[in-house]
Every structure is written in C-alpha cells, then in structure tokens.
Nucleic acid binder design. Structure first.
Lengths: 218, 218
DNA sequence: GGATGTGAATGCATTCACAGCA
DNA sequence: TGCTGTGAATGCATTCACATCC
C-alpha cells in the first residue's frame, strides 16, 4: 500500500472500479476477473490488474477477485469505509441540490451544516438543516472537527470563502465555483465545473472523436 | 488545427485556459504570456505553449498571447462560439439546479426542454419551461434538431433513457448518473459523478498528498 | 530583452507477455 | 485451464532547450 509511484489516472480509476463492483454485487456476482471488470468500464485487463496491484494483492489466481472483499478493500483505501462529516457553503440552487443528493450519504459523506452569506436565507431550514451564517463556520468546524467542505458559492465569493475554510482547519474542498482556488499545500482542492464539462462534451462531439465509446471525466 | 495527435489531457486544459483567460479579460488584461497563464493554473509555461500550438499559432513572439483573440479562438475550437440547444432529462433536485445554473448559458448552452418520467411532474413549470413527458423526447429533439442532452435521472433509468436519446439522434450526453453508459461509437458520453469526486477528494487528503497544491478534476 | 513554437530528450503510464499458482 | 501479479517493452505526454522573431 505504498504511494507516490501511483499514477494519478489510476486513482481515478479506483473509484470507477469500486462503483462497478458495487453494481456487480447488486447483481449477485461473487467473483470477477480483471477482464470482466475492465470490459464493463472500457479498460484493458492488464490495466485493471496493474492498478489494483498498486494497492495490494487482492486477486486469486485462477479465480479472479472476490467482489465483496474488493469492495471493502477499495473503500478502505479511498477512505469511504466510515462516515465523514462535511460542511456545505452556499445555499443556492446547486447547494440545495447537493444537500438533497442521496449519493453522498451512500458513499459515507454526511452534510452536517450549511452556510450562506445571504442574511435572507440564514435561519431558514432546508430539509432538516438550518442555514447558518458564514460567520459561524469557524465555531461549527471546530466543534465538530470537520475536515472537508463543499463550496457552492458564486465565483466572486469563492476565494474568500476558501480562505475562511482553510483558516478554520479544513483540509479538503470540493469546489463547484468555476475558478482556480489558491490554497496552502496541505489543503486539497477537487474541482467540478459543470459548464466546463459540457464544453468538453461539445468539443469531443466534433473533432475529438474516436474515443473509446464510453465514459470519461478523469 | 489537425487532431488525433492531441493528448486528451491537453483538451481538458484548453477549457481551463479559456476560463482563466476570461478572468484575465475581466481584469482588463490585454496580453498574457505562457508563463503567466500557466502560473495561474499550476502548469509550466512550456505546457501552455505546446498545448496551444496543437491547435494553431496564436502567440506573438516577444509579446505573448492577446487575451481577446485567444478567447475567441479557443471558443471556436471548443464549439462554444455559438449558442447550442440542449435537452435536460430528469426534473429532480439536480435537474432543477442544472436548469437554474447560469454558467451553461454563459458558455452558450441553452436548455430548451425538460423531461421527466414522473407523471406527477409533467405539466408543471420549472422556471419558464414546462416539464414534458419522456415520451415527447423524440418529437422535440427532431423538431429542434438537438444534438446534446443532459441526463439527470436515477441510476436505474439512466441506460434506458440514454438508449432513447441515442435513437432520437443525440450525439452527446452529459451524464450525471453514477453508472457507465453503453452507447454507439458515434455518441460521446461525458460523465460527472458528484459522489465520486468527493471520494477522490477523500483519498487525496490522506495518502495521495504532494499534489501541485491546486486544481484537479481532469 | 522577452517572448513563441518546436524537435529532441526525458519521464510517466499503459500494454505485453510470461512465470507461477489454484 | 484460467487467472493474477509483475518486470520489460512500448507508447504517450511533458519538459528542455534553442532557433526565431518582435
């Protein structure tokens, strides 16, 4: 389970393997070969084996991988084997959609507080969580020992909110604002730019053809 | 402007260059060097020059790149220099957030129709668009000559809706369902899995450190 | 001096191909 | 036979370094 010689693309694929394995599990598949797993995702069998081997020896020669086992191993590696609490900043349309999204909890992420700068929104409930003032980020984060936050605020506010989050001890930010954030080296930013994804799709539809017919996003 | 020897990562970076250039433009910057553009995004100057050179000769030795020019060129390359009409399937929380999101229109994507399988939702208006029945996808797509769709439906429905979209002539799908879609080779799928992004963040916060301190998502 | 664009060199990721085990 | 794990070979992407131009 050593790191730093692990290719970045392999880390992304790990998440896709996990997702696919859970789908196989729902289909009551107990065991799976690198070829079958790869086929479902558009990767070669060698790719699958090499990727998994970066993290340990999970397979059984002649058999393949045990689905249940591998799911657990991958969750452990990715850090989703336990519940993590997450802050959400921004109670706009996107923020509210994120709050309602079931997928986060299924992966073990629980949104425990939501903040907004707009005084008109503060105090109102969304689902069963009250919107709190930006000013309260520090106290809530400290009290609950939170390490991750989702940022769903307008571009103009993104950097300054990110700064706040950093000073409050947040170590990971999932950023939905279409802007490059500046953060210290010990803080990780993962960005999702929705319009950019659509733009990429647009490009790939025209010239950028000849892709492996399926997924992308890495 | 030839293709197919263009690295995939370079295509992603193109979108980041464009985004950053537009930010420089708002700051009334008229000209920019590869070094400055790269610095803002965490890339080397050589990387920036090489990437741009895949698509043409946009720079001016001794000067750099003219921001306004390059913005236009990149938009043209990416296909966002004109308005494109897009279908949205799925009127749940996420679908509604996507409909309300301003960023798409800013990049030239206009959602012109929204569909849902749930009869209870059909007929209701969201913003100023009525929710239509899934059954109407074919007629609307044909009539308006649509080529792109966003898919914001539950996993269980995703593949079957994708099939519908394909038969109706859609050539690009922005997929928000956390599942690998199977589509013919002439259809491009770009996927956004929100929970997967958070999972990746989780991993990178622990072992996967030592990243270039900033962005990611490609 | 201050830049770009680009072949050549390097470094990283993927694929090959095979030894070894069930 | 069927499959994994892995060094070696290949192929792809990035970086270097320099000729060229303003």
């Amino acid at each position: 389970m050593r790191n730093e010689e692990i290719p970045n693309p392999a880390v992304y694929r790990l998440s896709f393997y996990l997702r696919q394995l859970e789908s196989f599990r729902r289909g009551d598949r107990h065991t799976i070969s690198s070829r079958q797993l790869g086929e479902a995702l558009g990767y070669s069998d060698a790719q699958v084996r090499k990727d998994l081997a970066y993290f340990g020896q999970f397979g059984h020669p002649g058999i393949g991988y045990r689905v249940e086992d591998l799911v657990h191993q991958l969750k452990k590696i990715l850090g989703t084997d336990k519940i993590s609490n997450v802050l959400l900043v921004g109670a706009g349309n996107l923020g509210r959609a994120l709050l309602a999204y079931k997928g986060f909890l299924q992966k073990g992420f629980r949104i425990v507080a939501i903040f907004d700068a707009d005084a008109a929104k503060v105090g109102k409930k969304i689902g069963d969580l009250p919107v709190r003032s930006d000013q309260d980020i520090a106290s809530v984060a400290a009290e609950l020992q939170i390490r991750m936050a989702m940022l769903a605020v307008p571009v103009a506010a993104a950097q300054s909110v990110a700064n706040q989050l950093v000073t409050v001890g947040i170590k990971g930010i999932l950023n939905f604002a279409p802007v490059a954030l500046n953060v210290p080296g010990d803080v990780v930013v993962q960005s999702v730019d929705l319009a950019l994804q659509l733009e990429q799709l647009s490009f790939r539809m025209t010239l950028g053809d000849a892709s492996p017919s399926d997924e992308s996003s890495l």
